[in-house]
Nucleic acid binder design. Structure first.
Length: 432
RNA sequence: GGCGGGGUAGCUUAGCCAGGUAGAGCGCCCGGCUGUUAACCGGGAGGCCGUGGGUUCGAAGCCCAUCCCCGCCGCCA
């Protein structure tokens, strides 16, 4: 790890040292307790926490006093000797010979009993706390594992634009932004662009933010969320589910493998799914829901209640396939054997978390696509380039989008999706 | 868009139903303590009870309006 400034060791590296070794460490005051002439500082850096002891004998009275004046989150440079002492929280501590306050901090606002809204207003400071750092380290591993799976499986990374001219899905809510003398929108999915990319690279993926201007005040919605999307040439619905399942399993296994200790620190007992994910049809889902006395009409989209009831029936993530055509967006390919349903699949995470993946097989014939656009009262001229993709060597293809924050929420067991992202954006939150 | 809950000290909140001088814990400030672990002990400061109006001798509490926040449903990842 790169070291800058005067420090000789990261805190994690201290464990291997001998009693009496001289070190210079740098960090922020995590906790402080004073007792007469002794000041105990627990100093945190990005690798851990260690107790620093400031007392007369190894420091002047004035230096001890200046350590006493330093409050929580002050940044310090500490020079001292290693001491092994069972009274220290980690069994090791530093008897300071010099403490330099680099940046003062007075009355740090984040306190143990701070409320949710206060913490969100102070998110720029809250991310320093143990719980937030641990949560964001899980996020890091989820993103890393996702990227890694795609690379290992030969997918080509491809980015769609953030500014777009038209909606991907008719009806979905877009953020409008001024674009010189035109109107532009923030992308809500890169799907269409990935569909263009398969003709060049076959199997492609992207991991980038998507934006939805829905006033959804729930624990599973953000207006800006990170979206891992994949699109595969020649893949049918089952091929798509194989990819989605392999990716999801890989992410959950790698997070446990690399950050299992962090999940433990978050008090999360998480078993990565081992077995093959069940795949049930919409029709079967309706049956299960009705047995659990959820009233639902065939043709309705599955509500949150239905999804929860179904996901609680399985210990594993479960795919629900073949929804009624009218419940899904126009680009889903109707089942040739049964045209009132489409070849789509949603993946529901266990524990009532709900949908983390949505996808399916796309219509690959221009005629069929035009027909569906007209059925949905959409203007084909708005989809000119998308229709073009069906004119020049079209192939069967499928794809899906995975919600990164929803996946993090599931794996880390978070009550709310907003803690799965450093600076959440919701209908009411644009600060900090 | 529909339904429900809530705004009281820097933070977390009690008090509201049954109107009568606004209370606690934490934090903060001062003092004490040479082994603290979210230290402990003593003292202190800090509130137009979201905002505007009404009822009343008297409103944090009742009534009306309004702003803001949170959750659930819908929509979705």
């Amino acid at each position: 790890m790169w070291k800058f400034g005067e420090r000789t060791h990261f805190i994690q590296e201290l464990q291997g040292l001998k009693e009496g070794d001289t070190v210079k460490i740098a960090g922020w005051i995590y906790r402080k307790s004073e007792l007469g002439g002794v000041v105990f500082l627990r100093l945190r850096d990005s690798t851990g926490v260690v107790q620093v002891v400031a007392k007369e004998g190894s420091m002047s009275k004035e230096e001890v006093e200046s350590a006493r004046q330093a409050d929580i989150e002050s940044s310090l440079l500490v020079e001292g000797r290693i001491r092994k002492d069972p009274r220290s929280p980690t069994g090791i501590e530093i008897l300071a010979s010099r403490i330099k306050v680099v940046g003062e901090s007075h009355d740090f606002p984040i306190k143990p009993d701070s409320g949710e809204e206060f913490l969100l207003d102070n998110r720029h400071l809250h991310i320093r706390t143990t719980k937030m750092r641990n949560t964001l380290l899980i996020r890091k591993e989820v993103l890393r594992a996702a990227e890694e799976w795609f690379i290992k499986n030969g997918f080509v990374r491809f980015e769609g634009p953030t500014f777009v001219g038209t909606a991907v899905e008719g009806g979905a809510t877009l953020f409008e932004v001024p674009y010189f003398n035109k109107k532009a929108y923030l992308t809500q999915s890169s799907q269409f662009y990935l569909e263009a990319a398969i003709f060049a690279f076959e199997n492609v993926y992207t991991i980038q933010p998507s934006f939805r201007a829905e006033k959804s005040r729930t624990r599973r919605h953000l207006t800006e969320f990170w979206h891992a999307e994949a699109e595969m040439a020649w893949a049918d619905l089952n091929g798509m589910m194989d990819v989605a399942e392999s990716l999801t399993r890989y992410i959950s296994q790698k997070v446990v493998e690399r950050a299992g200790h962090i999940l433990e620190a978050l008090n999360r007992k998480f078993e990565p799914p081992d077995n093959r994910f069940p795949r049930i049809t919409y029709d079967e889902a309706i049956e299960i829901a009705r047995k659990k006395e959820v009233s639902i009409e065939w043709g309705d989209d599955l509500g949150t209640e239905t999804e929860r009831v179904i996901s609680l029936e399985f210990d594993l993530p479960v795919f629900i396939t073949k929804y009624p055509k009218k419940a899904k967006a126009f680009y889903h390919k109707p089942d040739p054997k049964r045209p009132d349903v489409v070849l789509c699949a949603d993946l529901l995470a266990p524990e009532g978390i709900g949908e983390i993946i949505g996808g399916g097989q796309r219509i690959n014939s221009e005629e069929e696509l035009l027909m569906r656009l007209r059925e949905e009262n959409l203007n084909p001229s708005n989809y000119k380039w998308y229709l073009d993709l069906r004119k020049y060597g079209s192939v069967p293809h499928s794809g899906f989008g995975l919600g990164i924050e929803r996946t993090i929420r599931w794996i880390a067991g978070l009550p709310h999706i907003r803690n799965a992202i450093p600076f959440p954006r919701t209908p009411t939150r644009l600060y900090p």
